[in-house]
Design a protein around this nucleic acid. Structure first.
Length: 272
DNA sequence: AACCAGGCGCATA
DNA sequence: TATGCGCATGGT
């Protein structure tokens, strides 16, 4: 892989095993949309950007400083060898089918708070509405980045709000959970930083101290926000997969990359 | 119109 | 420990 960066573009060339559309639109992140043919617009890593892919070249357009390239490489998990991981996962026939049907899905390394908050909103909800609630959350309480783009509001910003303040989001019973999460993160009761490196079970315990965060949401925050690819979120779709295909449990080839396997299986099962 | 959604908290046994 | 129910809202 090769990296080039200038004021308005970050270019990663010779990228292996990446599909931009699949990675941005497989249900792990909620703020991307295809604004024109193969051009994806959204806000991540603190920037409003357009993203496009030409063969194995990934182009990110925005306004950058020199050290932004590292963060975007991390966002697309470019330093992990997905080619190798997918080869290993293909030892299992169902995973082989899923990977062949949807090649190039990568786990996006989102901001921990954004991932946590987004998946609190996701509970007992559907993806179009999750996107709508998050969009309103950002528009009402995020920083205005211009051109109709807004940052994801910080925990500190949300911690001082009330459930009534969140009424315009129409997030229903989840509003009180958002507030509780924001308060516990802002006041340090839940330390998101340590979740990247501490013992996985300890990280789970830490997260479920938040009201509205159970096993599933905690697992999503760890996988999508903390780079823990061994976290394994089980939602209704994955539950179906497990009972239909893996009644005895996950195959051995998923060891250590359960979260990556999960993402391929999730997207495949949802699109059947 | 009814059922369901990338679940969770709470009551009950 | 294990079920089952209600929850706000709106997509399909």
């Amino acid at each position: 892989m090769k990296t080039e960066i200038n004021k308005n573009e970050i270019i990663f060339s010779s990228v292996d095993t990446l599909s931009v559309p699949l990675s941005l639109d497989c249900g792990q992140a909620f703020r991307w949309s295809e604004k024109s043919e193969s051009v994806w617009h959204g806000v991540a890593c603190g920037k409003a950007v357009d993203i496009l892919q030409k063969d194995d070249t990934l182009i990110i357009r925005g306004t950058f400083e020199a050290d932004d390239a590292d963060r975007w490489a991390e966002y697309f998990d470019l330093n992990r060898d997905y080619g190798k991981i997918c080869e290993r996962l293909k030892a299992d026939n169902y995973l082989k089918t899923a990977i062949k049907a949807y090649p190039g899905i990568r786990i996006l390394k989102q901001e921990p708070w954004e991932a946590l908050c987004s998946f609190i909103i996701s509970q007992n909800n559907n993806i179009p509405r999750i996107k709508g609630i998050i969009e309103r959350l950002c528009a009402h309480f995020g920083e205005d980045l211009g051109n109709g783009d807004f940052s994801f509001p910080s925990a500190e910003k949300l911690a001082v709000l009330t459930v009534e303040d969140l009424a315009p989001l129409r997030s229903g019973f989840r509003a009180k959970y958002i507030i509780d999460a924001a308060q516990k993160v802002a006041n340090g009761e839940v330390d998101l930083k340590k979740l990247h490196t501490c013992d996985l079970d300890e990280a789970r315990e830490e997260l479920i101290k938040i009201k509205g965060v159970g096993a599933k949401v905690a697992e999503c925050a760890l996988l999508y926000g903390c780079g823990r690819v061994d976290a394994f979120p089980v939602d209704v779709w994955v539950r179906r997969i497990m009972s239909e295909l893996y009644p005895e449990g996950l195959p051995e080839c998923t060891q250590g990359v359960e979260g990556i396997a999960q993402q391929y299986l999730f997207h495949w099962r949802r699109n059947i």
